[in-house]
Design a protein around this nucleic acid. Structure first.
Lengths: 139, 139
DNA sequence: TTGCGTGCAAAGGTTTTGCATGGCA
DNA sequence: TGCCATGCAAAACCTTTGCACGCAA
């Protein structure tokens, strides 16, 4: 079989990481740190290359939150319901906190954009910027 | 007057650049290159600082296109419809076209975010990424 | 005079790449 | 055996920062 992708030790480790860790979002350094603490370190370049490959395969989503912060990856999973279970993100401009969003309203708004404005929203890249509750309270 | 912002030569030059160049989008290096060719070079750090300031003031929009490509700025000062009311933007990931959005749905969605999620949406920084009608048709 | 603006170089951080080595099929 | 994966370090890249000096108010 010529998939162009080999089943290696690291690849298995990464898949296991995605499924065992509850964390929805993770960065390259998160992954590296995890395996370093397990005394099974993986080179940074390898993680970048594998994760990028998996994004292409559709196993992971990649989010660009900000120019100067690391890219955020999300495991979509083996289940195929993933495409309906899209998630959007709110980012606080003050504290930088990332809020996971998936509610009816954003879905219906996305549908509105599509039907009325002929614009197909991309959850992977769209980030809602604003001020979170805590930071708003401090002001 | 204590605005905290001084009216300098470079600031005027930049404003003129925004209004004379028809280009909707530009990067920091675009700006630097432009003034270098005019034999009136501006330091890179200065451009970064001024542009960032103008984003805060609401004169410019800043788009993060990709993690490894430079930030993209857009002059919105002269768009009158942005002054009369809040304005959101859709950006096509394929052709780069920018669509100005002005509808009830986004306003009510913003209100929903605020009441239900305690998140105050910032129109200046929030950009909806996706695929526009024309590019969707081509596929 | 005070405080912001500027320029340069250096630093900071993320991501990519070159190259030799090792592993999968 | 051929091709892909890996690791390390270096490079590339965008962006920010420190500091001394210049300029606006």
């Amino acid at each position: 079989m010529r998939t162009g992708i080999y089943k290696t030790r690291h690849r298995d480790d990464l898949m296991e990481y995605f499924e065992t860790t509850g964390s929805d979002h993770f960065t390259v350094s998160d992954v590296c740190e995890y395996f370093r603490q397990k005394n099974e370190p993986i080179g940074t370049a390898t993680v970048y290359r594998q994760l990028e490959k998996m994004v292409t395969e559709g196993i992971l989503n990649k989010y660009i939150i900000d120019a100067n912060s690391p890219a955020c990856f999300q495991y979509i999973g083996s289940h195929e319901h993933c495409h309906e279970d899209v998630c959007y993100h709110c980012k606080c401009e003050k504290c930088g906190k990332l809020i996971h969003l998936h509610c009816e309203e954003i879905m219906s708004f996305a549908k509105h954009l599509e039907t009325e404005h002929s614009f197909i929203l991309d959850p992977r890249r769209t980030v809602f910027y604003g001020i979170c509750a805590e930071c708003a309270g401090k002001q």
